[in-house]
Design a protein around this nucleic acid. Structure first.
Lengths: 168, 168
DNA sequence: TAGCGCATGTAATATGTTACATGATTTC
DNA sequence: GAAATCATGTAACATATTACATGCGCTA
């Protein structure tokens, strides 16, 4: 999976491993993120498969390893992209915990859910900031996914609040 | 994670590994699921830690390995449950793909999104069936998570439709 | 008697995170 | 001169999936 996503980011232009991590943080992190510990080994793997090409440069007196996508890389990326969207059920650990809340007191449950709402609101704030900054810079698809994140988190909060009011 | 979730299911009563899988399918699979290949080894691990107790029985001339939660198991489960809900960003692979749709034609993108909507609708149908069957049988928390799934999928469809209409 | 559901389990494989390790450059 | 950011990478560890392997009991 990560292989394709990295290729996707390289479709927008050559990048270092560090750049990829930054781009993820500022764009897909609300629905997909990866660590350096997976990005660098994946880039090495992609290079061995000849899907990316390495270009060592000295930029601003700082040496960088720039990766760019090869023709073969573009081909397999586009083939993947045109395959049906796999409908994978979203792994939401927060729901799992709430699922079992009948085993704790109502008051404790409400407190925990309220704390959670605070965290979700924080995430909305971060995403809104990203949305503001990227205004006009992104294509419809990319800006829609950010918008989706905000909408989704809002619906999570709404659901939490309804749950609390039903509990009372 | 799975360790706690299995303990949670055992809080409702003793179960076999197979039972746990079935229960997940009929309750949490829209936001959390596990395979036999992870359930059985986890049960063994929990037994070694003395968090569950094994009870080999012969039920309907069929031998079963029933697991029940121990006092120690209840304690660590409840301790986990009362800790703050970790706000983990949801991993949604479908969004990743759509994020890169600027690299395919608008027509192709619309077709793929429409196919996806069909799959999501199918999932809503399955969840609605589960909701119908469990009506009145579940506590507020558990029924809320099912309701959440339906609401969430509906919002995914709404978002997809808006995206399509914006594309046109 | 074939196939399905019940029931348990292992091995190979995939996939990724966290922590560690290093070192340069830039900003305060 | 300290701290933050840029930049790359490895090793230990965690976690889970898929495929395989096995076998019983029920039903069409």
């Amino acid at each position: 999976m990560l292989e394709y996503i990295i290729l996707g980011f390289l479709m927008f232009g050559e990048k270092t491993g560090y750049d990829i991590k930054q781009t993820m943080k500022k764009s897909t992190s609300n629905f997909f993120d990866a660590s350096f510990g997976s990005i660098y080994p994946t880039l090495t793997k992609l290079e061995k498969k000849n899907y990316v090409v390495i270009n060592e440069v000295l930029e601003d007196s700082r040496k960088k390893t720039l990766y760019s996508i090869s023709e073969a890389g573009k081909n397999i990326f586009l083939a993947w992209l045109q395959q049906p969207i796999e409908f994978s059920k979203t792994h939401s650990i927060y729901l799992v915990k709430i699922y079992f809340y009948s085993f704790i007191s109502k008051e404790k449950a409400i407190d925990l859910i309220k704390d959670f709402i605070r965290d979700v609101n924080k995430a909305i704030g971060e995403l809104t900031e990203i949305e503001e900054k990227s205004k006009g810079k992104l294509d419809l698809y990319r800006s829609s996914t950010i918008y989706f994140g905000i909408e989704h988190y809002n619906s999570v909060i709404k659901w939490c609040e309804e749950l609390i009011s039903n509990l009372k």
